[in-house]
Design a protein around this nucleic acid. Structure first.
Lengths: 263, 263
DNA sequence: TCAAGATGGATTGTCGACAATAAAGACGGC
DNA sequence: GCCGTCTTTATTGTCGACAATCCATCTTGA
């Protein structure tokens, strides 16, 4: 389920231009996965010598991978200080939803206008699989989440807009996965979400760009609201460990330091 | 007129956290400006040893700057081959407009909801300056273009959405400047654009997010259409040097090579 | 007792040299 | 004369060591 999205093109059978993977490339993929899945805990400081030794590479290659992770906003770096894994606050999480709303609504419209018939058929097949998975509730908890992302992922690709695809699939996609792992959120509205997905696909199949855009916007807004409610419950319930308010600028003398990566 | 946008925050007087600029930071800024303004021609190959010598830095620092340039899509790199400055095709240019439409429409809505009264006052003052500049036609050609970007820039910041701001101001902003320099486009609808800007600000001042969003979307679409028409004229007129069709995947044996940077 | 400054330790930024890879040109076969 | 293969050359990827910077602790004075 961890497909390499960075090298995927619209037609995956593109003769695969002998990617010539470099060490930094592989490291980037590994670290990205490790961060998204929580193997490297959120908020932890990243020690360059330690990580370099851990993965058996030079510090230079590691720094290159770190810089790419910074570019997709999975880690934050400060000069002469170091890097740490991002700690998504609830406000930042909601910010991502706003960006996705604007971008994915546009993607849905473009997909309705320009997606190939074959692509639409694949979309329908995907939804059919999701319906079946939803039948036996066991898989629902995790796979439906991945399936949700897969759906949005394909709509983005269906837009045919390279820059749109890159922003959605290379940056926001991984951030979304990260927060779902961090906050441990299991969607309580998979059934409604699936129904909304179906409506969107119908609009795309009917080549109704305006409707597809509107449906996608409403879908993401509903998802955002559900998340907002869950967040309110979480923050009110047990003391938040991974959730903190608006980012404090410079904690001059913090009494307790954030945990370092346990190497 | 080349403000450093990367370190600008909502309140520019933020005590400026002693940014501790590193060599790669400065190089990044310099190279970005050089590329955007055409000093390093579009499509030219970048030789790491040559550039490193030219700027008097190590190749390592240069590579770090290059990697950041790649992150904001100003250069393209291939492993074991090298980097070259982007060559915006007309389709890619229009793609950027679509992304901006989705993002800036959202930004306008958020700005209407959350922008401070002081910020709105500044916006109005900015428009007043633009009106005056538009009075004596001399400045129109170049400054109005910068003024246009400045307007959109401020709306984005007014959204208060950090991620939205970063995408718009750190990535798309420079790309837009780049293509305006590359294609040598002077807007022939500055007067209409200014009027549209005024309407948007009115909507924001009235806290009408829905209207602001709708106006911004229409504004960007109109700008896109004007660009589309200009592109059609250009491609039909003289032989296009900076404009090429859909990107060719692998020019196996190109008879003529793109120009290298003249060092 | 608290605050401010100096000091030590560790981490990051920077650099030059070596190895691996791909592009360009020479050579030979068809 | 043209195509495929091999060699050469230049460029990029990778590495380890040194220098600059920051953080934490300790010291000193009021």
């Amino acid at each position: 389920m961890t497909v390499d999205t960075s090298t995927m093109t619209l037609a995956a059978l593109d003769l695969e231009d002998a990617p010539s993977l470099t060490i930094a490339d592989r490291l980037f993929d590994q670290l990205r996965q490790a961060i998204v899945e929580g193997e490297i805990p959120a908020g932890s400081k990243i020690s360059e010598p330690a990580l370099a030794a851990r993965y058996g590479v030079s510090r230079g290659s590691l720094r290159e991978a770190l810089q790419r992770l910074e570019a997709i906003k999975l880690i934050e770096r400060r000069a002469n200080v170091g890097a740490r894994v991002v700690q998504l606050s609830s406000t930042e999480l909601l910010e991502i939803y706003s960006v996705r709303e604007g971008l994915e609504a546009m993607a849905a419209r473009l997909a309705a206008e320009r997606m190939s018939d074959a692509g639409i058929a694949e979309l329908k097949a995907l939804l059919e699989r999701h319906r079946q998975e939803l039948a036996h509730e066991d898989w629902q908890r995790y796979f439906q989440q991945e399936g949700d992302l897969d759906f949005h992922f394909r709509i983005a690709r269906g837009s045919g807009n390279r820059r749109l695809i890159e922003i959605l699939c290379n940056d926001l996609y991984h951030l979304t996965r990260l927060y779902r792992c961090q906050f441990g959120m299991k969607s309580h509205r998979t059934r409604e979400a699936l129904r909304e997905h179906e409506l969107i696909v119908e609009a795309i199949a009917a080549r109704d760009g305006e409707l597809a855009e509107w449906l996608m916007r409403r879908h993401i807004r509903a998802s955002r609201q559900a998340t907002e409610q869950q967040l309110a419950l979480i923050t009110a319930g047990h003391p938040p460990s991974a959730i903190n308010g608006p980012r404090v600028r410079r904690p001059r003398r913090p009494t307790t330091r954030p945990p370092a990566t346990p190497n």
